[in-house]
Structures are given as structure tokens and as C-alpha cells.
Design a protein around this nucleic acid. Structure first.
Lengths: 102, 102
DNA sequence: AACTGTATATCGTCCATCGATATATGGAGT
DNA sequence: ACTCCATATATCGATGGACGATATACAGTT
């Protein structure tokens, strides 16, 4: 799983968000480093929905603009947990190596 | 940066390795989850060399088989450190979220 | 003789990301 | 009034890294 997709899962892990909200959340989460474009985001959302990792939470209409909220499914949360565990392992290993070498 | 490429950097972070050695190191590092194919590995090595993140360490010949050892450059070590820091941040955030939700 | 492990290398395909483009509303600035 | 920016979703072509297959070659095992 690539970084943008992972960050979408992390963002949705906290609470349901709509597309634009996810973009902003990922930007904040990454200290402004990662800006997910619309193309990447909606493609990822479609893909994750197909994989039963996210699903439509609700739709809100505000000032003529529709907001489509998505949430993690149980599967999605599991995938997030597994993906995080694996990444955690790599990071721990890398930190040990980097510290050891000074 | 994608996972296989990152794992190559982590593997080389410990000590210089030859191609096949990197494959085995990554496999161990990932508990058998990630098996980098030759195509991915040598392409990544070429790319990372082009980016001045890895370089040829030495060549050894053993039983007619050449072993080409690569090592991280200073730039490569910096990139590894930065990439690790960013990933560490994401993982920490994800763990906080996952724990908070139980 | 065939298979597995070690070792490097190339090639075509696939897929997620990226950047651009489109559409639409509302608010702020000039 | 006009323009720009933020909000909001959606699609499309191009790019690039990963994947799987294939090739070559030697050594040890079955």
C-alpha cells in the first residue's frame, strides 16, 4: 500500500470525513508535505470502497455543495492496524540502524 | 518513496550488501512478507545510484559468480533518516488513533 | 538428469499517483 | 462588477515504480 492511500486510512481512522476534509487532514497530518490531489483521492476512495475498507457514512448538503462523508469499515480498521504494525517494525529497525551509526 | 525502495535503503543502512544479499535482508527484515524480485531490485538500485543515494562499494568474485556490493552514500543516509522520520510520525499518529478507539 | 540456491540482468505489463482540466458555489479583495 | 481563492466533487492522460516472467550461469543435492 502506498503512502497516499495509507494516509487516507489514517485520516479516516480518527473520524468520518468528506473528500476535501481528507485532503486537508492529510496535509495537516504530514505537516504540509503531502498534498493529495483530487485524482489520487477519489480514485483511492473508489478503490478502498471496492475493497470494503471504506464506505459511505452520510451525505450533507451545505450551500448547494454536497459533502460525501466516508468512514472506515471494520475491515478498513484491521488493514490500518496491520499496515501500521508492519510500518512500525520497519521504522524501529531503521531508527536502530541510524542511531547505531551516529 | 515506495516500500520496496525504502526497504533497500534500510537494508543497506546496516552494512554494504550485494543484490542477492539485499533480497534476503529485506525478506528477513519484513518477516518473510516482502520478497523483492530481481526486476524491482536492480531497477531500484540503478535509480538510487542515479539519485546518488547508493553507490558501488566493491566487487567480489566467488566461484565464478560476481558479487557487486552497494553501500549508502551520505545523501542516501540522510534520505533514509528523513523518510524514517516522516513514517515514524504517521505510525505514531495511527497508533494513537487505533488505541483511542480500542 | 532435474531441481534448488546463489547471482545478476532485462522486458512487458499493470496500477497507483500525479497534474491538468472541468464544473459549481460563496466570500473576500480590488 | 470582476477576479481570485477556498470549498467540493469528478474525470482523464501521462508517468513511474513494482511485479512477474524470462534468461544466463555455476554449484550442490536428490
Amino acid at each position: 500500500m502506498q503512502e497516499p492511500t495509507y494516509l487516507v486510512l489514517v485520516a479516516l481512522g480518527e473520524k468520518p470525513l468528506h473528500g476535501y476534509g481528507i485532503m486537508k487532514a492529510v496535509e495537516t497530518l504530514s505537516d504540509g508535505r503531502v498534498k493529495i490531489g483530487a485524482g489520487t483521492l477519489y480514485a483511492a476512495l473508489d478503490r478502498l470502497a471496492e475493497l470494503d475498507q471504506v464506505e459511505l457514512d452520510r451525505e450533507e448538503t451545505e450551500g448547494g455543495r454536497v459533502r460525501r462523508y466516508y468512514r472506515l469499515t471494520r475491515t478498513g480498521r484491521q488493514v490500518l492496524a496491520e499496515e501500521t504494525a508492519v510500518r512500525s517494525r520497519y521504522v524501529a529497525r531503521a531508527l536502530a540502524i541510524l542511531e547505531g551509526k551516529g
